[in-house]
């Protein structure tokens, strides 16, 4: 690995280790995922049944796959909008980050991605296992959805870390960012299809949702991974995800530069 990228890799690994130490939190997260999962199952299955067993391409098996994969991703996709970096800006510790010879954006995103990857094992897989064993769900039988699904998942996870980073930079200009963070939590959760899949949205609302980067964090990876969409459509979704990721990283970098200038002017 090139020396330029090595620090980010080390940070990513540190993120993995960091997350692995919070065993109890992992267990707590799993309990939360499963509880919400069963509640979602109850409502969404009832909806599919009330529609006659098939609703906008979902049957019971694929709805179950949606519920349990989305629950499994909750530990890895940051829909809460909270981050340590936001706290570091607030406390002024960010000055330390700026004094290092690496990009704070790269450092934060690498660490968050590391944490997200570490959560996939103890939170993602058990959640899917609960769904498969207790409720039953239909998953694709060909390899392509899994291969593309993993790529899509990785982009989704990195995108969510990059978005939350960009959100945190608001702290350079605002004293209190909690209001914004809560807004982000509500809107991203809704538009990423956390509680209701976007396909069930009425047309106009789904048009709004797909105009935001949020479906790329969770909804698209689920669609690709569970084989709900065709191979071509999967590739299109991957393209959309990649475009949002690049755009978010660029915006984040610009905001970081502007924030740094603000700090230098105001003296932090």
């Amino acid at each position: 690995m090139s020396a330029r990228l090595l620090p980010y890799w080390r940070l990513l690994v540190a993120g993995v280790h960091e997350q692995s130490t919070y065993r109890l939190a992992m267990l707590g997260g799993l309990v939360a995922n499963a509880t919400f999962g069963f509640l979602k199952v109850a409502m969404l299955f009832a909806t599919v049944r009330a529609a006659g067993g098939e609703l906008r391409g979902y049957d019971i098996g694929s709805m179950s796959a949606y519920v349990w994969v989305s629950q499994g991703l909750l530990g890895s996709v940051n829909v809460a909008g909270t981050s340590d970096f936001a706290d570091r800006i607030k406390t002024g510790d960010v000055a330390v980050d700026f004094s290092r010879p690496i990009s704070p954006q790269g450092a934060v995103v690498a660490r968050e991605v590391g944490k997200a990857v570490a959560a996939l094992g103890p939170r993602g897989l058990p959640s899917i296992a609960i769904g498969a064993l207790v409720v039953g769900m239909s998953m694709p039988t060909t390899p392509w959805p899994y291969l593309l699904g993993v790529v899509s998942l990785v982009i989704g996870v990195v995108l969510s870390a990059a978005l939350v980073y960009a959100l945190a930079t608001a702290g350079f200009w605002l004293i209190e960012t909690r209001g914004i963070q809560v807004l982000y939590m509500v809107i991203s959760g809704f538009f990423t299809g956390l509680f209701v899949p976007i396909s069930l949205f009425p047309g106009w609302l789904s048009a709004i949702a797909t105009a935001t980067p949020f479906p790329s964090m969770m909804m698209y990876p689920i669609d690709v991974l569970t084989g709900r969409v065709s191979l071509t459509r999967s590739l299109v979704l991957l393209g959309i995800q990649a475009a949002w990721l690049v755009a978010t990283l660029v915006v984040g970098a610009l905001l970081t530069r502007a924030g740094r200038r603000t700090l230098e002017v105001q003296g932090g």
């Binding site: 409502m43 529609a51 807004l183 509500v186 949205f201």
Partner: peptide
């Protein structure tokens, strides 16, 4: 933000009933 939370939670319920 707080208003929006309540509103979106209601919307999530509404979406289901929009379908059935």
């Amino acid at each position: 933000a707080s208003f929006l939370i309540g509103f979106i939670e209601l919307a999530e319920v509404w979406i289901l009933f929009h379908n059935v």
